[in-house]
């Protein structure tokens, strides 16, 4: 049964993208994987822009290349050819060490299975990306507490992931993603492992981050309901962008 109320209902208006600068430029990107002796093309000649504050949903069937595209934009995989410029930095030209530094300050990750470190508390998980910054202990604490407040989990900061529900774990993961105030947030099936109620909570939270905090979000999803929260939806099919999709 479809829920007549969408995740973004009751929240402010979406960001006016017309007046926003382009923050992500994807140009002529190609990517193929080698499986045995076979070269399997995954992405072919991908070109598109993302504006600052845009909430983009990448959709498409399994194997269409949407997760690969997300990984390339997030700087955790390398293109075979083409360029990806984010915030004025051509990340395809960065070496591995530079790319790790760049990710630490520019990308917030939200994974399908939350990917929290089980031996660290919610507070420590959110603090992890801040360990890579030059912030003092007290500054880190301040940032973490604020991020946990945003996701409404201040009262669970000393809990370990195993003591939290799926929805709560994903909210901790979102706090971890936003705590460094990154240039882009990338989310790979953020509601894929959640029940309907938790999924809606998460999408509502992401919608709020987009509309109230002006975060640029790139989300891969299979779920049309989740995609409704996005301002822009792009479809991938067999490694190519298919914007003619209904």
């Amino acid at each position: 049964m479809t829920d007549p109320v969408t995740a973004c209902d009751g929240q402010g208006p979406p960001v006016d993208l017309e007046n926003q600068p382009v923050i992500v430029e994807v140009r002529n990107v190609n990517k193929a994987y080698l499986r045995g002796n076979h070269v399997i093309p995954v992405l072919q000649e991908i070109n598109f822009d993302i504006r600052a504050g845009e909430f983009l949903a990448l959709m498409g069937p399994s194997g269409s290349g949407k997760s690969t595209l997300l990984n390339l934009i997030a700087g955790i995989d390398k293109v075979d050819s083409g360029t990806i410029v984010i915030g004025g930095v051509d990340i395809t030209a960065l070496d591995e060490t530079e790319l790790a530094h760049w990710r630490a300050t520019n990308v917030g990750f939200i994974f399908q299975f939350y990917n929290l470190i089980p031996v660290l508390t919610a507070f420590e998980n959110v603090e992890l990306p801040l360990q890579l910054t030059g912030l003092s202990r007290s500054e880190r604490r301040e940032h973490v507490e604020m991020a946990l407040r945003v996701v409404n989990l201040s009262h669970r900061m000393d809990h370990y992931p195993s003591q939290l529900s799926g929805g709560e774990q994903q909210r901790v993961a979102i706090a971890r993603a936003v705590v460094t105030d990154p240039t882009i947030l990338v989310a790979d099936e953020p509601t894929g492992d959640l029940d309907r109620v938790s999924a809606k909570e998460i999408m509502s939270l992401m919608c709020r981050l987009s509309r109230e905090s002006g975060k640029t979000i790139i989300m891969v999803t299979h779920d049309p309901k989740a995609a409704e929260a996005a301002q822009v939806i792009r479809h991938l099919d067999k490694g190519s962008l298919n914007d003619a999709h209904p």
């Binding site: 060490t97 790790a100 299975f113």
Partner: peptide, 14 residues
Amino acid sequence: TAEIGTLRALGFQR
């Protein structure tokens, strides 16, 4: 393995 991937994605070096 997934934890290692997560830490690396967050920006921790090899």
